[in-house]
Design a protein around this nucleic acid. Structure first.
Lengths: 372, 372
DNA sequence: TGTTGAACGGACAGCGCTGTCAAGAATAAT
DNA sequence: ATTATTCTTGACAGCGCTGTCCGTTCAACA
């Protein structure tokens, strides 16, 4: 272990007084590398119109002559002008800021959400504010101040926040629009983007059944996530439709974590009588199953097929690689950002504007024909 | 596969016209749940001082009588007042916004950085803006507009952006402060926060040597990351200091990815003459080695010890769990945020303010005594 | 008692932009 | 040709806050 600061030259922490960028610019003479901030006035002067007209062009407002618009746009390009977000936000209704709230994310999920959302936001000049919420402490205390200081045009909620009543209440009270990703049952309350978890689980189960498996174990996900119940339902429906029994001792409760999958697998595979396949409600738990199988020297998939859900990066980081369901996480986030930027609004009584995106079955090496 | 929109009731995408929050507030009569935005004027009136004095209290400026300060703070609390960030940013020098730039992150790393940074930012009323940068396309085109539209008090750069000259140049040209996390060799250029990668690799190698290993394979990390060379150096130094040979055919170039680790391991373990331990420069690659070992039915750690670096979530998501080095990612990000908020500035000629944080060797089950 | 500076509080001018409103120009309707 | 409309444009007033500058007050000193 290395003591802080040890073994390196000149690394003392030195906090010098702040010399504001602004002052530097002011002071800096002509020719300084720091270009003076150019404003809407510069563009107006350059193109010979009023600042209001420049503003119109910038905001794609109607009733501007094509000729005028062109002149302004040329000036914008020539001066390399960019409107200042703080000023726009202060003066106008839009904030050009979209929030992403998340809590205890599985690695990769949040990053995918951010990447997906940004891909849309960039085009429209929006930026992303990330706000981790710790739902084990007072959520109200975290959300309310944040909403009061920073105006956002909307918030993207990731599970399990998509269903957190305190968060939803706070958002509504502050009048901030939001879109939920993969919410639970309360589908009528507010806009959402999701995928058909039930159908996906149904198809995965069918994939297993098609491989000859008749005795399939299932690990349920975290009860706070709405998707958990839907995935379980898909499994049950597929078994029913294939006239296969759903044995209660083949269904274990998990928590979406590696550890919970590991422990569930120990119970599932502990006795002599064991299933020939296990379908876990997410990849982390499936990887837990995989670990138990490895430890027990079970050959995957020859002796045991394992299926996951989510197609997290971890699904490819094992051997054999995991058969799983690819969630369109980035696409869902992009759709949510879209809705927020176009100003979705849920009118009382109407069904909330929402979108259901496609999933994809990703068959890799962890599932194979049933033994015997 | 499910067609979009199929199989669900009332999910049509409906984009209603935007009714601005603002208007709603104006219109809303007394008693509406949407409380009218309270401003610094309200606080001033409530506490019987001028708005400037309120501002002084808010910004902890000197020369305010204790009695006055208390009255103002009481009013702030009573009215539940929160200053508006856009207005502060527009009028003053601070933006209350810190950016996090990242590129092609390994899952979990970016999230850790965000969590670490936020933990500090929240206290000071700062928010985090995330900006993924795609360094395969024009970086200048991505960074310049973003900096022009949104003023940020500083930017946290994660590897490999910490060493990306175009990004650093753009930041400096725009006069935006930045702190680099785990930069490469150019330690003199600008502030950074890091850990001693060389020392950590040195200790890990010693751990292996202490276990009796004399023939150790090493997989180098991505050459764009400054840490790669340092970790390699630590390995070489430890071998030298133990009078052990560093065979060229025991060192493979990797790219920090699972696949590159997998392929390197295939080369390392392909022949009859193979090392008894492999030290990979990060966990993803170590997991690749583990997959090859599993596939070859090698017992880990009895026949092969495997060590990683980073302690990513994936390190615990295998069996056996990975021996690795815990990087203080969140702490590094928190330190970086600290530096930015306190207004670090690198004065020409001085060594840049920087911090070196502790790492931790995490010995788990993937390393054991050398065979024989 | 007079003087001086520090401590304290407030008036005021913007920051860069958008919303409102109204005037003038162009077009349509009569 | 005249009036009624619509289109196009600009002047202007803030949005909510901080920085600057100036007027007080008050203690400490001569």
């Amino acid at each position: 272990m290395l003591a802080e600061g040890e073994g390196h030259k000149g690394i003392a922490m030195t906090a010098l007084s702040w010399l504001s960028t602004r002052q530097t610019e002011r002071i800096g003479a002509v020719g300084t590398e720091l270009s003076a901030k150019i404003t809407i006035h510069d563009v107006a002067r350059e193109s010979g119109v009023s600042i209001k007209t420049v503003s119109r062009v910038l905001n794609r407002e109607p009733n501007v002559k094509a000729d005028t618009r062109d002149r302004v746009q040329a000036a914008v390009a020539a001066l390399n002008y960019r409107p200042n977000i703080s000023a726009r936000s202060l003066a106008g209704a839009k904030a050009y800021l979209i929030g992403v709230f998340f809590d205890n994310p599985s690695p990769g999920y949040v990053t995918d959400v951010q990447l997906g959302a940004i891909s849309r936001c960039r085009q429209e000049g929006y930026h992303l504010i990330v706000e981790p919420i710790d739902s084990t402490s007072d959520v109200e205390d975290q959300v309310a101040p944040m909403l009061a200081t920073l105006r956002m045009d909307g918030v993207i909620l990731t599970p399990p926040l998509s269903d957190h009543p305190v968060v939803l209440d706070a958002l509504e009270r502050e009048g901030v629009a939001y879109v939920r990703i993969a919410p639970g049952d309360d589908v009528e309350r507010a806009p959402w983007v999701s995928m058909d978890d039930r159908e996906a689980a149904y198809e995965m189960t069918n994939h297993l059944i098609g491989l000859g498996h008749r005795d399939i174990g299932f690990i349920i996900g975290h009860p706070d996530h709405g998707a958990s119940a839907r995935r379980h339902q898909g499994f049950v429906d597929a078994m029913r439709d294939a006239d296969l029994p759903v044995r209660q001792d083949r269904v274990e409760q998990g928590w979406f974590s590696f550890r919970s999958g590991f422990e569930a697998a120990e119970r599932l595979l502990g006795g002599a009588d064991r299933p020939t396949a296990i379908f876990a409600s997410n990849d982390d738990m499936a990887l837990g199953v995989m670990a138990v199988a490895n430890r027990m020297r079970l050959d995957v998939p020859a002796q045991l097929s394992i299926a996951g859900f989510d197609d997290t990066p971890g699904a490819r980081i094992t051997w054999p690689q995991l058969t799983t369901v690819r969630q369109p996480i980035a696409a869902m986030a992009a759709a949510a950002a879209d809705m927020l930027m176009s100003g979705v609004q849920h009118e009382e009584g109407d069904p909330p504007p929402s979108r259901l995106l496609d999933f994809e079955l990703v068959v890799r090496e962890s599932t194979g024909k049933a033994p015997g």
